[in-house]
């Protein structure tokens, strides 16, 4: 399908917000397929353990993923993460945390926290964390905001520029990756039956 486009012929005028959203999220006009299990790793690859999200995505890539799974190296581009959630059947976000707990501690953010997101009018575009990305995504995607979202946070030890993951964080990264693989295997297996 093709979304309505303004400016046909010599007439120029702004699109309505609804028409713009429909164009932005149109299948023919998007590089992102819908209906996927989308795994997004957030964080800076240049900053030690803050890279745990992107490194998890690379780890999954190396191990191979089913066609139904889309891996997203969210890096530090918070806003674009929101576009990649469009029409997903399930979204998993993995990000770093520094709460003061033991390094490697894995948190799963509960559902009610995912409802209670920061107000969009208080957001700054490029200081996104997972909660900002979700709040922005809910605004951006409207009806196409996925309803199955899980967020894992891994407690970091060091953000030394250029350093590898520390041992405990690397172990937790593998642990989360294995959980994800188990989860989607079960889900896709149920689909197949």
């Amino acid at each position: 399908m093709t979304a309505a486009v303004a400016g046909s012929g010599d007439s120029f005028g702004p699109l309505s917000v609804e028409a713009a959203r429909s164009l932005a999220l149109d299948d023919e006009q998007s590089a992102h397929p819908r209906g996927q299990i989308v795994v997004i790793g957030c964080g800076s690859l240049l900053r030690g353990d803050d890279a745990v999200g992107p490194i998890l995505v690379r780890h999954l890539w190396d191990e191979g993923v089913p066609d139904e799974v889309t891996l997203v190296d969210g890096g530090t581009a918070g806003m674009d993460v929101a576009f990649k959630m469009r029409g997903a059947r399930k979204v998993v976000i993995v990000d770093a945390a520094a709460t003061g707990a033991d390094p490697g501690t894995i948190y799963r953010v509960p559902g009610e926290e995912l409802e209670d997101l920061p107000a969009v009018d208080g957001l700054h575009m490029h200081q996104f964390r997972w909660d900002h990305a979700l709040a922005f995504g809910r605004w951006l995607l409207a009806d196409e905001y996925p309803d199955d979202i899980t967020v894992y946070l891994i407690e970091i030890e060091s953000t030394e520029p250029g350093a590898e993951l520390t041992d405990r964080v690397a172990a937790s990264m593998r642990h989360v990756a294995a959980m994800l693989q188990t989860d989607w295997a079960a889900e896709l297996d149920a689909d197949a039956r």
Partner: peptide
């Protein structure tokens, strides 16, 4: 680095 602060933690 968009890791967490102690307050949120």
């Amino acid at each position: 680095v968009h890791a967490y602060d102690g307050k949120t933690g």
